[in-house]
Nucleic acid binder design. Structure first.
Lengths: 357, 357
DNA sequence: CTGAAAGCGCTTACAG
DNA sequence: CTGAAAGCGCTTACAG
């Protein structure tokens, strides 16, 4: 590759001069005559010189790369967040480096991140983060946690405010005449205490909002599924059976089935709709179903899914904005939290209660 | 950050010695006594030394980073390919850097890629690639194009072999008794000649296979849609109308409607199914519909979608494997092609022809 | 076996 | 206005 020395030699000037004109540096002490400047620029173009950013980074002691640690990049909401972060980073002249992590590789990835002297880290995984916080704190690089239920011990948190969307969804259902509203929550906490329990958090929001609206949630009107879902090309025959059970249990509730089912995520809602249809119920004429997340499948589904929209990309963008903000100032590990509101999108899986119900 | 000099100073030895033991270098000329070695290792751990990979790269003249240029990362198949590449790269001790590109930013991204001295490039975009080929050729870094219909002028191509899956799909339908099989193809070429025309390529495969099976494709049994789809949170009210028209046209075909519709991609198939259902047809009892790609929505759909599975992740993995293979040998821009077979997955949107048809 | 030296490609005070 | 020098953090022949 052609180097800075090559162009200095060609023009007959020192590397320093080249560096100055290429970086557009014009301090009071340095003023390169236009003619020299032009010759340097010409030579640069002619030789096709491309500055070695690695060397620049070594000399300057800083990179313009952000690391994104993600545990399960296959899951659509997670990669949507990455895409938001990617485009924001690029717009701001930074570059994003995605590192996939699991418990067994965290140490290695962390080593790479520090080794690469990444400017900052965005993290999105569920297991113990103390190692990353410790290392980052030592290296004095800022960390932003994205989309976790509870605030991290270190750095900033960017998370979705599920409350707003949840409230809108329930108001929407009430407006359509629904009073008997059930919820399918996440059964993961029973399986794995490490798992980030978004489902249960949403269940709490649901209960709170129902209470606020003076609506009863009878015993048995909250059930749980533990279907695994991870993006494309999952082995088929995945465990939808827990959704079947959760839905059937609602449909056969002794005090009568609900007129609407609110699900803790879209995947659950789509399977729940299938169950309803297989049991001879029309959606939304006989029963309404709404989801949470607005994954892309939601709008293709038939009926298209009414759901709470989480602004994944926006969260990714906010994460890098916050990170760069922290980069601009002195290193400060004090935790802060930034919530991004969710909204409700009414599509065709929710409709007015029919009087026959 | 603690540097190599720090640890050399602490142990009371030269930086060279530190470098040798840290890199596990044991040539015939150098043999560091175990005691020194241990003291160096201890000091390294104690000080929490993290080698600066940037400096290493500058000194060694090479990085272990692969660049991935992608035009539309929001589209699930593209993202899945990236994930395959990411995990393969990481397993092989490399690191992947995703750069999003569009026509207007290509030059800038290319500058970054060369500036970062990326080891190789994987590219996945539809517009003119000559700039990238030219630069890469000059910088002598290998390029792999992924998932394009036609072979690139430079470097390797990793693409899906749609033929195998297409054949399996048609055989599957024939086996179910179908003879009147229609196809919904892509209408994009009419809109934008730049657009990579996978749809039309698949249409050709369909026609060829039908001919081989001695089945007629009557005039009007191939229609086209031009619905846009790009991942999560597309503005709603996107243009499904062309799918409605394409499907209706088949259902009202003068010589009778087909018993099966093969669609050039899953999104089209899902909307086509909706159209059939809205027109009072049951899927698959009255009409079968199959798709292409196996996006994650396919298995949630009701009925779950029978479709050709493109092994996106595997293609991503293969792309990095091929790239590293080229890295191992002398730079050679000769184009080569690697096809990854597709398969057919039978789910519930296809079924036997009923005699009433 | 180990250190002093030169090198990778860049930047930036500091003299002149 | 410009060059010579020292520096960033690392590696690797080359002497001793």
């Amino acid at each position: 590759m052609v180097t800075m020395s090559d162009i200095a030699a060609k023009v007959g000037v020192s590397r320093a001069t080249v560096s100055f004109v290429l970086n557009g540096r014009q301090t009071e002490n340095v003023r390169i005559p236009e003619a020299t400047r032009q010759r340097i620029l010409d030579a640069t173009a002619e030789l096709g010189y491309r500055p070695n950013q690695l060397a620049q980074s070594v000399a300057l002691g800083k990179t313009r790369m952000i690391g994104y640690f993600v545990e399960e990049p296959r899951y659509e909401p997670y990669w949507a967040t990455i895409i938001g972060a990617l485009s924001e980073a690029e717009e701001l002249g930074f570059t994003l480096k995605v590192l996939s992590v699991k418990k067994s590789t965290l140490e290695e990835r962390l080593r790479q991140a520090i080794g690469l002297r990444l400017s900052g880290l965005i993290v999105r995984f569920n297991f113990d983060k103390s190692a990353i916080f410790e290392e980052a704190n030592r290296a004095k690089i800022p960390v932003i946690t994205v989309d976790e239920g509870n605030a991290p011990a270190f750095g900033s948190l960017v998370a979705a405010d599920d409350a707003s969307g949840c409230r809108e969804a329930i108001k929407h259902l009430i407006h359509l005449g629904h009073r008997r509203i059930a919820f399918i929550s996440s059964g993961f906490p029973r399986l794995n205490s490490q798992f980030n329990d978004i489902g249960s958090a949403r269940e709490q929001l649901f209960r709170r909002e129902m209470a606020q609206q003076k609506l009863d949630v009878p015993e048995g009107y909250v059930t749980r599924d533990s279907m695994m879902v991870y993006g494309l090309q999952v082995t088929d025959g995945f465990d939808t059976n827990t959704v079947y059970e959760a839905t059937d249990s609602l449909l056969n509730h002794p005090s009568g089935r609900p007129t609407a089912i609110f699900c803790w995520r879209d995947e659950t809602a789509m399977i729940a709709i299938r169950v309803c249809q297989e049991r001879g119920l029309r959606v939304p004429e006989d029963i309404s179903v709404v989801g949470f997340s607005n994954i892309s499948a939601a709008r293709f589904f038939n009926p298209s899914l009414s759901t709470v929209q989480t602004p994944w990309e926006e969260m990714g963008r906010l994460a890098v904005t916050q990170l760069l903000h922290r980069l601009g100032q002195d290193f400060d590990p004090t935790p802060t939290t930034h919530l991004v509101p969710t909204t409700f999108i009414a599509r065709h899986s929710s409709g007015p209660v029919h009087h026959s119900n």
